[in-house]
Design a protein around this nucleic acid. Sequence first.
DNA 1: TTGACATGCAACTATTTGGTTGCATACTTA
DNA 2: TAAGTATGCAACCAAATAGTTGCATGTCAA
Lengths: 105, 105
Amino acid sequence: MDIVFKALADPGRRALLDQLHLNNGQTLTELCRHLEMTRQGITKHLAILVKANLVVPLWRGRYKLHYLNPAPLLQISERWLNKYEAACVRALADLERSLDEPRPN
Amino acid sequence: MDIVFKALADPGRRALLDQLHLNNGQTLTELCRHLEMTRQGITKHLAILVKANLVVPLWRGRYKLHYLNPAPLLQISERWLNKYEAACVRALADLERSLDEPRPN
DNA sequence: TTGACATGCAACTATTTGGTTGCATACTTA
DNA sequence: TAAGTATGCAACCAAATAGTTGCATGTCAA
């Protein structure tokens, strides 16, 4: 899970995901054409995305196609975000209630 | 948005959010008791979370209470994750379809 | 088999980040 | 006012990360 968050933390890597979202199954060289990064830079970022299982590579002769895998995103959404979203209303209530209390602790 | 992703990338900061989720509105010193980090470390992480608007501080005399703000998480969930989740089925279809094609590009 | 293309790997540098230490400031209460 | 407590700030070090360069490997097609 940590590896997924870290993979998502970089704007370049999110741009990569966006590009694959736009056109799934691109090769490294294709990605180079659409993004303002060097090939080696993209290679490194792709490796991190693959480790996080956000991108799945598929060899096809001498071409390595890259496919988006939204599964880790679903996991984050379900197991992490929902927990906090549920606390949204409660958090606001807590905050407002505390505005006129003497002191916690 | 970038700042939120980066704030979420650190395990220590996620632990901080979890701790606040467990008991909202804690002071810095209270958080120190529950987490395995030095006060100065927590201070730094809190500053990053506050900049990302994931935590909202509220002065109360000499106590600075920290409250969770799930709004940025909602934004990520709505504007970013859903986009990819919608592509989930399509991505799988793309991948399987390409398994017997000669070549893209 | 040769040339062109697609990708991989390793080394290096620069920047960012996480963590620590020491001291300063401010509020509270006895 | 003095002691105790809550927090802030700045400097520093170590580790991780991003980005670049150069060369190697492997595939395809003429």
